[in-house]
Every structure is written in structure tokens, then in C-alpha cells.
């Protein structure tokens, strides 16, 4: 008995499924929701430190270094940082210029990365002063962007929470220092942050 093959027509169920698959595969984000109101301000503020790699690694380094230094630095540095960062933000809002902001932020990643790499333990006052100086640069950068936010209060809430959570990530990772292998891993992470700091510094000075 001869076997007949039916040609695949456009009405074939398989054809419809293939078209649907093709449409799904080439889908693009709609961006139907504009960044507006509280949600827009909150998301843009929250993502600002996360999406800027220079901010991100410096914040994590603060937590890592605090964990290396132990009590009271482990909680004192992350508690002090938001207040000093806000002071930097106020400078930005008030229009007070701060020279070499990008270089200052890049140097924060470099110096804090080196502190973690070599597990340096200066007196608490020196550590707080160092972290505080860098917090001013980070705060200034955030503060100058605040007026343009969809909702400035929500933007401030977002970036302060985001910064605090990045510190927490550093502190949690820093608990690995309880074990010898973990100590080496954290120092290695510090080295990576310092290397990124070198790159950011060179880029901010226009060398790359």
C-alpha cells in the first residue's frame, strides 16, 4: 500500500507551534513601565551602587575589611559609613565641588582592596577616618544624581539600603576568615578588588 505524505500547510498545528516558538525566541523587552514615582526612584537608587562596579567592589571591601578587623570595626565601619556618605551627598546637593571624584572612588577600591589583601590592622580611628574619607566621594557621586531621580526620597532610601546590603555581603563573606583557607580566599578577593581599583584609577586619569 503506498504511503502518502501530506504536505505541511500553514494550518498544520506544528506550523503554528513553530511560529509561536520563533516569536518567543526573538522577543525583546517591552519597557512598558516607565521609571516613575516611588518605584522608579527606589529602583534607580537601589541599582546605582550595584551597577557601578567601582561603587560595588569598594562597598564589599568595607565589609570584608571590617570582618578582618573584628569587633568593634565589624559593625562600626558599616554603621558610620552611611552617615558620612550622606554628608558627601549633601555636599553634592549643595553644589559644593569635590575634586577628582571618580579618582577618589577608584582609589577607594584600590586602597581598601590592599587593606584586605595584606590584612592590615591600623588603629580603629585611622581605619574609620580612611573609610569615612572614601564615603564622602561615594556620597557626593550619589548626591549629585539625586535631584534627577523620579522620587528623590525613594532614591535616597534605595541607595542607602543598597550600600548597607553590599557591606553586609562583605561581612558575610568575611566570616570565612574563621578558617585558614577562607582567610586566604578573602585576601585573594582583596587582591582582585585592588586590581580593579588600579584599572578604575587608570581609567579615571584617562590612561586607558
Amino acid at each position: 500500500m503506498p504511503h502518502h505524505h501530506r504536505p505541511i500547510s500553514s494550518s498544520h498545528p506544528m506550523c503554528g507551534a513553530l511560529v509561536l516558538l520563533l516569536i518567543c525566541a526573538v522577543a525583546n523587552p517591552a519597557h512598558a513601565h516607565t521609571e516613575a514615582g516611588v518605584a522608579g526612584g527606589l529602583s534607580s537608587g537601589f541599582l546605582h551602587p550595584m551597577l557601578g562596579l567601582d561603587h560595588l567592589v569598594a562597598m564589599v571591601a568595607v565589609g570584608l575589611w571590617g570582618a578582618q578587623l573584628g569587633k568593634p570595626a565589624i559593625w562600626l565601619l558599616p554603621i558610620t559609613f552611611p552617615m558620612v556618605m550622606a554628608a558627601g551627598g549633601v555636599m553634592g546637593l549643595a553644589g559644593l565641588p569635590l575634586p577628582a571624584i571618580e579618582t577618589g572612588i577608584a582609589l577607594s577600591a584600590l586602597i581598601l582592596g590592599l587593606m584586605v589583601l595584606f590584612s592590615l590592622r591600623p588603629p580603629l580611628e585611622i581605619a574609620a577616618l580612611l573609610v569615612g574619607c572614601f564615603a564622602v566621594f561615594h556620597g557626593h557621586a550619589h548626591g549629585t544624581e539625586l535631584p534627577a531621580a523620579a522620587n528623590p526620597l525613594a532614591y535616597g532610601v534605595g541607595f542607602v539600603i543598597s550600600t548597607g546590603l553590599l557591606h553586609l555581603v562583605g561581612i558575610v563573606l568575611g566570616t570565612l576568615t574563621r578558617w585558614p583557607a577562607g582567610t586566604r580566599a578573602i585576601r585573594g578577593l582583596g587582591g582582585m578588588i585592588a586590581a580593579l581599583g588600579v584599572y578604575f584609577s587608570a581609567a579615571s586619569l584617562g590612561w586607558m
Binding site: A87, G143, L146, G156, V160
Partner: peptide, 25 residues
């Protein structure tokens, strides 16, 4: 207590920024 104090620091920082925004901007 550390988490609560950190929360206080965040709240004060947010207020400091928003007050400055309100006054300066």
C-alpha cells in the same frame, strides 16, 4: 542591637539627604 543601630544609621542618612534636597534643591 547591631542590626537595629545600623537601621538607625540608614534612617538618619536618608533623612539628612532628603532634608538637604528639600532645602537646597
Amino acid at each position: 542591637i547591631i542590626a537595629v543601630r545600623a537601621g538607625g544609621s540608614w534612617i538618619a542618612a536618608i533623612g539628612f539627604l532628603y532634608l538637604a534636597f528639600t532645602l537646597f534643591v
